[in-house]
């Protein structure tokens, strides 16, 4: 249990560091990245992969710097659309998944919606906090409310969008 919490906590930090970084911090962070990339070219490449990507189904994924794992969750937009989340069916640990699979489900206001994964692999962690506090998905869908961590196999399938592209996409819909 302790180990799982630690992993969960680590994962949370990973996601929230990208999302919650206040705008004013960006210059200094960027400088740090630049310095790092000058020393380690490879690292800068993977750092670019790390940005959150969004699907048309309103999930997000964020790949780890080494590209071996990713965190998956549902977007701010989706969480707002769904209303009060009362239950989340989390994927089972070690479950083998393929891109396009439903790996869980969200229930809010009498509505069931599937959580789809755009990438295949194996589920290596799940956000146990959501079992006790499903409302975390409403409070912080792109940070504390992450759903699962996946050991990635292969490339993502389907259309993936950057934050800007996704925002434009949701405004269009």
């Amino acid at each position: 249990m302790v180990a799982r919490l630690l992993v969960a906590h680590g994962a949370r930090q990973l996601t929230s560091s990208a999302v919650r970084r206040p705008a004013s911090f960006f210059p200094s962070t960027c400088q740090r990245w630049q310095k790092a990339s000058a020393q380690h070219r490879l690292f800068s490449v993977s750092a670019a992969v790390k940005a959150k990507q969004y699907t048309e189904d309103h999930e997000w994924i964020e790949l780890s710097p080494d590209g071996k794992t990713c965190i998956l969750g549902i977007s701010d937009y989706a969480a707002k659309q769904l209303g009060d989340v009362v239950y989340i069916e989390l994927p089972q640990l070690d479950m083998e998944i393929s891109a396009g699979d439903a790996i869980g489900a969200v229930e809010s206001v009498k509505s069931a919606s599937d959580i789809l994964t755009p990438i295949g692999g194996k589920v290596v962690d799940r956000n146990g906090v959501l079992e006790e506090k499903p409302g975390t998905v409403n409070r912080d869908p792109e940070g504390d409310g992450w759903i699962a961590k996946i050991e990635v196999e292969g490339k993502p399938e389907g259309k993936l969008m950057s934050k800007e592209e996704y925002t434009a996409f949701t405004e269009e819909v």
């Binding site: 048309e56 206001v109 009498k110 509505s111 069931a112 919606s113 599937d114 789809l116």
Partner: peptide, 8 residues
């Protein structure tokens, strides 16, 4: 009574 299923 109402119930819903939402997809893409």
């Amino acid at each position: 009574g109402s119930a819903y299923k939402l997809t893409r």
